[in-house]
Nucleic acid binder design. Sequence first.
DNA 1: AGCGAGATGAGCT
DNA 2: GCTCATCTCGCTG
Length: 212
Amino acid sequence: MGKLKNEFYTRRDTVAVARGLLGKLLVVPNKNGERVSGMIVETEAYLGERDRAAHSYAGRRTARNEVTYGPGGHVYVFFVYGMYYQLNVVCGKSGSPHVVLIRAVEPVEGIETMRIRRGRATATGFCADKDLTSGPGKLCIAFNIDRELNGTNLRSGKIWLEDYRSVDEEQIAVGKRIGIDHAGEDALRPLRFWIRGNPFVSKPRLEISAKN
DNA sequence: AGCGAGATGAGCT
DNA sequence: GCTCATCTCGCTG
């Protein structure tokens, strides 16, 4: 169960990384060293300066997205909607600000820890298991991911990815990315990937084709 | 089971 | 000022 090598993030195109991340295990140990982990079931590719949906579109390089201009194999975490964080993996080589957004995982280890953290975000203090990590904001709460992790190397001891399950190509569903209607034609591109039928996928019904 | 509003802050797409 | 790579709750039916 070793951490994924750096080449996983740097050597292939971003779509291949987004597909390849399905079935991998996201691990973020807590302060006691307990493993909190989940299998990635939904991703989106953001293709840098020529992608209207990307933060770096048209060369907008700012303090916020600076780490996306660095080498692949690091984490890009940003704050959105005044309340939520989003976890991304930086891909490719320095100067090419491509990322893959991790949109959903299936809980594997540390599930009780996730229940406590997610319960704090609800009025009742309770969170159904199917809602623990079934969205980009939810999984950041369940894994305690915030801006402190921005820029962290994925081969550090704070957050990493491991091999876990292999996913056949025909299990991968493809669709439009979520929440980027402002991106014009790029909003239609088939850059969202998920494991068909997995109950932790955030919006399963938007499949536009089974193959790329 | 599906919508609309509200929460909340950072960057202007 | 307004727009978000969102989520929860409360209303409808």
